[in-house]
Write a protein that binds this DNA or RNA. Structure first.
Length: 588
RNA sequence: GGGGGCGUAGUGUAGCGGUUAACAUGUCGGCCUGUCAAGCCGAAGAUCGCGGGUUCGAAUCCCGUCGCUCCCGCCA
C-alpha cells in the first residue's frame, strides 16, 4: 500500500507516529515559508504542513503541487496547539508534518470546483463525471447507495433468500415498455431484448422450487426520460412461494423501515405504513402515488356544486363527472390575477379550467366562483372542505380522472409553494386493490394495470368471466413521498386463469404461446402459489439522499436524450460490425 | 410527438436597446512561517450557444436552430 492510514483516520492517539498518507490536494495555502495542504481521500481530510526548516525537498514539492494533484506524504503526526484545532475536521486535532512529499501525479485545473458543492451545469458535470464523482455530494450518495444495497442483501440472506442472477440477453415482451434490442450475429434477423424486469425468470425460479429469490437487477426500458426514470435502472427483484399479499407486504415494510432507520438520517413518519385502496387514493389525493408528508386532501363537492347555478359545475355533474375542491390554507390573500394564473397548472394536466373563491375574514367569500356560493351554499361548502377564513378554495369540474389529475398537480404545486414537503421526512404508504384491468378505448380491449401475470384477489376471481373491469388485482404498490418505489403482486399460477387473462387483453393463444410458451408449459409442472415485488433502488436512494432526481444516485447516468455525455454513447459503429449483425441502417 | 425554462471569462452569477460587458471565485505571477473559504498586490482570461432579422446601435427585441433541463404523451 502506498498509504498507512486514510486521510480521515488520524487522531490524537497517533501523535508521534510516522505515517504515510496519499490522496488529492483539496486546497493549498502557501505562506511563502510554511505551506499547508488539505490532503483529501474518500475518508476525509488531513492537514499537511510543509516546513522548509524540516524538509526543504518536501517544501519544494508542496510549492509545486496544485489543486487535485495526487500526493504521497510521509511525516510525523503532530498535535495541533489548542488554538489551532479545526473543529470542522475529524482530523482537526492533528496535522502531519511532512518529511517526504512525492507528487504521484499532477492534475490539470479541473473545469469546476471539486471541493465545493456549488451548483454546476449538469451537462458539464456529466461530461466530467469522474470529477463530479470526487465531490462530497456524489461520494455521500454512492456510499449511501452501497449501504442500502448491503442492508438489503444482509436482510434477505438472513431470511433464507437466495440471490440468483438472470440473463440480460433475453426475449422481447412487446406488451410492456419499448424494449432495448440486441441483434444476434448467429441468428440473422433475430434479436435478444434486454429485460424490462426479470419478471418471467423469477416466476420460473419459483416453479424451480427456490421459494425465496432476490436479485439486485438491472432493468432496461426504452421510454422517454424523467427525473425518476433512466433507460437502465436497478430494482430489488424479489419473489416468494407459498405466500399471500400480506406476507410480501410485511417483509418489505420491515425491510424499508430498517433501511430508513439504520442507514439514513431521515425521519420515518408513519409506522406501520398506511394502506390506501386505489379508489381511496384517487378520491383523497387524485393520484395513485400520493405524497403523505402533507395533507391538502381533495374534497368531492359534486353534491353541493350540483345545487348551484354554475353551468360548468352542474354540467360536469350531469355528465357523470365530478366537482372537487382543494383548500390552499392561508392563500386567501391571492389576488384575482394570482388565482387565475393557477389555471395554467390544471390546464397542463388536461382540465378545461379552474374556479376559485377566497374565504374572507368575516366568513363571506370573494372570487370568480363566490357568487355561486352564498349563504347556506357557502356554509355547506366550508363545512365539507374544512376551509377557514383566509383560505383559498380551488375547484375543478370535469370527468373524474381529469379532475383527479388536475387537482393532483395543484396539490403538489401548493405543497411546493407552502414548503410542506420536507425532504428529511420519509412517508411510505401502500396502495392496494387496484383494478386488475383498465379499459383501453383505442384498442377496444382490457389492459393489465400491473402486468399480465398478476392474479385477481381470490374473492374477485369469478369477475374475470362476468365483469373484468370490476376485478381487483392482488397487487400492491409501495409509495414514498409521492413516488412509486415498489410494485408487486401475487401471480397467477393456474393455467386456465392465465389463459383467461390472455383472452381479455386480446392476446390469442397462438401469439401467447409464441411469446410465453415456456411460461405456460412451466406452469403445468407443479407451480407453487407465488408472488413478489420489485422496489426501485434508484428512487429509494434518491429519497433517502434528499436528491431531486435519480441521476444523483447513479454513478454514470444518461441524460434526457438517453446519451452518456462522458463517453458519448450511443455512437456510430464500424460498417463491419453492422455487416456481421446483418443490419443495414436506414436514413430517415 | 407537444408545452415550459435555461444558455454571458474555467466555474457561479449580474447586466435585459446606448461608453471599454460587471462581480465573486478559480488560474498565473509577486510578497508572505500558523493557515484551514488564508491574506495583500498585480496580470491574463468572454467572437454573450450558433445563424438570420429589426434598429443609427443588439448580450438585451423578433424568428430559426442546437444543447441541457422540467412537464404532458409514453413508462405491461
Amino acid at each position: 500500500m502506498l498509504k498507512t492510514h486514510t486521510c480521515g483516520e488520524l487522531r490524537k492517539e497517533h501523535v508521534g507516529q510516522t505515517v504515510t498518507l496519499a490522496g488529492w490536494v483539496n486546497r493549498r495555502r502557501d505562506h511563502g515559508g510554511l505551506i499547508f495542504i488539505d490532503l483529501r481521500d474518500r475518508w476525509g481530510m488531513t492537514q499537511i504542513v510543509a516546513d522548509p526548516a524540516q524538509s526543504g525537498e518536501a517544501h519544494k514539492a508542496a510549492s509545486e503541487a496544485r489543486g487535485e494533484y495526487v500526493l504521497q506524504v510521509t511525516g510525523v503526526v503532530r498535535a495541533r496547539p489548542e488554538e489551532m484545532v479545526n473543529p470542522d475536521l475529524g482530523t482537526g486535532e492533528i496535522e502531519l508534518e511532512a518529511t517526504v512529499i512525492k507528487i504521484l501525479n499532477p492534475a490539470k485545473t479541473p473545469p469546476f470546483y471539486i471541493y465545493s458543492d456549488e451548483k454546476v451545469e449538469e451537462a458539464l458535470r456529466m461530461k466530467y463525471r469522474y470529477l463530479d464523482l470526487r465531490r462530497r455530494r456524489m461520494q455521500r450518495n454512492l456510499i449511501l447507495r452501497h449501504q442500502v444495497v448491503k442492508y438489503i442483501r444482509d436482510f434477505l440472506a438472513e431470511r433464507g433468500f437466495v440471490e440468483i442472477e438472470t440473463p440480460v440477453l433475453f426475449k422481447t415482451t412487446p406488451e410492456g415498455a419499448r424494449d432495448y434490442l440486441v441483434p444476434s450475429r448467429v441468428h440473422p434477423g433475430k434479436f435478444y431484448a434486454l429485460p424490462q424486469s426479470p419478471q418471467q425468470l423469477k416466476q420460473l425460479l419459483m416453479v424451480a422450487g427456490y421459494e425465496r429469490y432476490f436479485q439486485i437487477a438491472r432493468c432496461f426500458r426504452d421510454e422517454d426520460q424523467r427525473g425518476d426514470r433512466q433507460p437502465e435502472f436497478t430494482q430489488l427483484d424479489l419473489e416468494m412461494s407459498f405466500v399471500e399479499r400480506a406476507d410480501v407486504m410485511s417483509l418489505i415494510e420491515t425491510l424499508m423501515t430498517g433501511i430508513v432507520k439504520d442507514v439514513s438520517d431521515c425521519e420515518l413518519l408513519y409506522e406501520p405504513f398506511p394502506r390506501l385502496t386505489y379508489k381511496e387514493a384517487m378520491d383523497r389525493f387524485g393520484t395513485d402515488r400520493p405524497d403523505l408528508r402533507y395533507g391538502l386532501e381533495l374534497t368531492d363537492v359534486s353534491a353541493i356544486a350540483a345545487k348551484t347555478e354554475f353551468k360548468v359545475f352542474t354540467g360536469a355533474v350531469e355528465a357523470g363527472g365530478a366537482v372537487k375542491a382543494l383548500v390552499a390554507p392561508g392563500c386567501g390573500d391571492y389576488s384575482r390575477r394570482q388565482a387565475e394564473e393557477l389555471e395554467v397548472i390544471v390546464q397542463e394536466a388536461g382540465a378545461k379550467g379552474l374556479a376559485w373563491l377566497a374565504v374572507n375574514a368575516d366568513g363571506t367569500a370573494r372570487g370568480g366562483a363566490a357568487r355561486f356560493f352564498e349563504g347556506e351554499r357557502l356554509a355547506e361548502l366550508l363545512e365539507a372542505t374544512g376551509a377557514q377564513p383566509g383560505d383559498l378554495v380551488l375547484f375543478v369540474a370535469d370527468e373524474y380522472t381529469m379532475v383527479s389529475a388536475a387537482l393532483d398537480a395543484l396539490r403538489r404545486e401548493f405543497a411546493r409553494r407552502l414548503e410542506l414537503a420536507d425532504p428529511k421526512k420519509i412517508s411510505f404508504c401502500w396502495v392496494i386493490d387496484f383494478p386488475l384491468f383498465f379499459w383501453n378505448e383505442e384498442e377496444q380491449r382490457w389492459d393489465p394495470s400491473h402486468h399480465l401475470f398478476t392474479a385477481p384477489l381470490p374473492e374477485d376471481a369469478h369477475l374475470l368471466y362476468t365483469d373484468p373491469g370490476a376485478a381487483r388485482g392482488a397487487q400492491y404498490d409501495l409509495v414514498c413521498n409521492g413516488y412509486e418505489v415498489a410494485g408487486g403482486s401475487i401471480r397467477i399460477h393456474d393455467r386456465a386463469m392465465q389463459e383467461r387473462v390472455f383472452e381479455l387483453i386480446g392476446l390469442d393463444m397462438a401469439t401467447a404461446r409464441e411469446r410465453f410458451g415456456h411460461m405456460l408449459e412451466a406452469f403445468e409442472y407443479g407451480t407453487p402459489p407465488h408472488g413478489g415485488i420489485a422496489p426501485g433502488i434508484d428512487r429509494i436512494v434518491m429519497l433517502l439522499a434528499g436528491e431531486p432526481n435519480i441521476r444523483e444516485v447513479i454513478a454514470f447516468p444518461k441524460n434526457q436524450q438517453a446519451s452518456d455525455m462522458m463517453a458519448d454513447a450511443p455512437s456510430v459503429v464500424e460498417p463491419i460490425q453492422l455487416e456481421e449483425l446483418h443490419i443495414r441502417v436506414v436514413e430517415d
